[in-house]
Nucleic acid binder design. Structure first.
Lengths: 193, 193
DNA sequence: GATTACATGTAACATGTTACATGATTAC
DNA sequence: GTAATCATGTAACATGTTACATGTAATC
């Protein structure tokens, strides 16, 4: 949220929209979440609230403070703790080990569909960043690089899902521990060095 | 946790260890977390607790129930809601748009280091799965495929980080909006179709 | 003027982390 | 025997989601 506020002061609603638009692919959060978090920012002195109103509804614009900028800088430069990566579709695939091959095929298909959706939804947005039509001016470039990464990742996922589905289909037909199966494992071993 | 219990009954500590060992790359959770969650499983009828003791310390073994298996099947087959993907290192890179090129280089370096760590830590485990030395017998195969995915992903990340770092270094030296810079954006546009 | 979508939240709950406490086991 | 590590948690807190309530603007 500080990262968003660093660009300009915003209302919680605008913040929520921006996060939904820009970050949902790798940092998905529910919209209502920001209304509480923004209060915390104010409490901790990272943001100032400017309270106004349209009609009789409250309307609060939050602006980042110097202290907030400092905190953001610190976080950006900060050391990372663990692996900090969460991939639910892959978790499903992994745990399908305790199910049937059909379960696994379904899970692999779901992971693939997710990547497809990412490509479909993200393409227009990525173009906005790259062509500079997006209101982030100079910031466009690192963001374009981020999208580049997301795209390669999605393509990797689709490619992997297709090959994985073929393998699992083979197992379903022939059962485990066949020669074909052993060859597949040998290939994997090769791959991992 | 049900996915782990489906294999065999375990104590919370064993569960925590197994999750730390197998899932941390894409589903990292604090160990102490499981002690509460396992109680919820019991409360909801997804697992049975068998309470015993070593010396005077409590020791509770949890076993999955038929109802628990059904719930697991349901979840594995279940539709996925949103994108459900969380990538903290990439979030940092994306938000470095509001910082200096050096901030961006640091964040890109951190993402790369994370992928390297994944390769280093995961390689022995992946080999265990592939060679069947791991105690998951027939389940090995889907898990080997999952590791295959993680490895390709890590390699992709490293490759991307190297190219991204070169680009950003170029921007740092020449400033934005140079010809070089515009060429880079054109390449990205090309890539995204 | 009724309906729909946008905007602004709150309340209740679920999930997850950190810091701590403390008994048992192992290594020296 | 004692220090380190394994094992088993609890308490306090932080974070995140779902379901709801309700005002405001656009539209038909």
């Amino acid at each position: 949220m500080l990262g968003q506020l660093a660009w300009r002061a915003q209302t919680p609603y605008e913040l929520a929209k921006a996060m939904e638009r820009n970050l949902r692919f790798f940092w998905p959060r529910a919209a209502s979440h920001v209304y509480r978090q923004v209060k915390r920012l104010e409490r901790d002195g990272f943001a100032n609230a400017e309270r106004g109103a349209t009609g009789r509804r409250p309307r609060t614009v939050y602006a980042i403070t110097p202290r907030g900028r400092e905190a953001l800088r610190g976080w950006l430069a900060g050391e990372a703790g663990g692996i900090e990566l969460e991939h639910e579709p892959l978790l499903r695939v992994f745990l399908c080990a305790s199910g049937t091959p059909d379960d696994a095929l379904r899970a692999i298909g779901a992971a693939r569909a997710r990547a497809e959706a990412m490509l479909a939804i993200g393409r227009p947005l990525a173009h906005e960043y790259i062509e500079g039509r997006h209101p982030f001016q100079d910031q466009v470039h690192v963001r374009a690089l981020s999208f580049d990464y997301l795209y390669r990742w999605a393509e990797l996922t689709i490619d992997w899902a297709d090959r994985a589905a073929r393998e699992v289909s083979g197992w379903r037909d022939t059962g485990p521990s066949t020669a074909k199966h052993r060859r597949a494992l040998a290939r994997l071993k090769e791959l991992l060095g």
